[in-house]
């Protein structure tokens, strides 16, 4: 089995090559293959759902803006008596291909378990302080949302109007944001001491290397990197 983070890593490299590809049709086809590989690497239906939810809202405005509105492309085609700009549509699909590759990889990445992510960072010998910094940041983002809800409740409980119109909500904004900011900053000293006492950032990790996936991984590298690179190279030649 290929560790998911490494499979994603190979498809990311392949995706970078595809994003630089010159021929629009090849570009689009290879992009489709990279997206499929990425989804397969995570083995998760959630990845498909997330990918579609994030990317479709980008595809539709792209097609509308460049296929209908952008005056730099000629209005030279019709579909069901609706005029459109054919070059604009091709341009939109090309831009979307890059986006789709990027979004698929990033969406796959977002569905990677947090523990696997950190194991991968350590296995890649990322400096411990960076690993810790990213870890604390992500943990505190979750905390900020939780605190924000608690603060909103507490300020509502005290009678501060948090609605019904935008003017009230705007005036309430400092009362919700500032307690979150102030409490986090005031806690910095204690947090730092507590983490230091655990030996956090003080000692080197014993990095655990992720296992090699055998022939499967070789096949994966071939499909995601070697094949697109070869096709693109031969077209340019």
């Amino acid at each position: 089995m290929i560790p998911p983070v490494r499979a994603l890593g190979w498809t990311a490299l392949g995706g970078t090559i595809v994003m630089c590809s010159s021929d629009r049709l090849v570009h689009f086809s290879l992009a489709v293959s990279i997206v499929a590989l990425t989804v397969a690497s995570t083995k998760s239906l959630k990845t498909i759902k997330t990918f579609v939810t994030i990317s479709l809202p980008l595809l539709v405005p792209l097609i509308l803006i460049h296929g209908l509105v952008n005056p730099q492309f000629e209005m030279n085609a019709r579909m069901w008596s609706v005029p459109y700009r054919q070059e604009g549509i091709t341009f939109a699909l090309s831009v979307y291909s890059n986006l789709a590759v990027f979004l698929a990889i990033a969406t796959g990445w977002a569905n990677v378990n947090r523990d696997e992510f950190f194991d991968w960072m350590v296995a890649c010998r990322v400096p411990v302080f960076l690993v810790g910094l990213v870890g604390q940041s992500i943990a505190m983002v979750i905390l900020i949302e939780k605190r924000g809800r608690a603060v909103l409740k507490a300020q509502t409980a005290r009678g501060i109007p948090t609605g019904p119109n935008w003017r009230h909500r705007l005036r309430a904004l400092p009362s919700v944001i500032l307690p979150v900011v102030t409490s986090l900053i005031n806690e910095a000293d204690q947090r730092s001491t507590a983490l230091w006492s655990r030996g956090f950032l003080e000692y080197e990790f014993a990095a655990k290397d992720l296992p090699f996936g055998g022939f499967r991984e070789i096949g994966w590298v071939a499909a995601s990197i070697i094949l697109p690179a070869a096709i693109d190279f031969s077209l340019r030649a």
């Binding site: 910094l133 604390q136 940041s137 983002v141 900020i144 900011v181 900053i185 947090r191 730092s192």
Partner: peptide, 14 residues
């Protein structure tokens, strides 16, 4: 480093 993590979290979470 902890304050940096707080600043990152504020940018992302607020």
């Amino acid at each position: 480093l902890v304050v940096s993590a707080i600043c990152i979290a504020l940018n992302v979470g607020l």
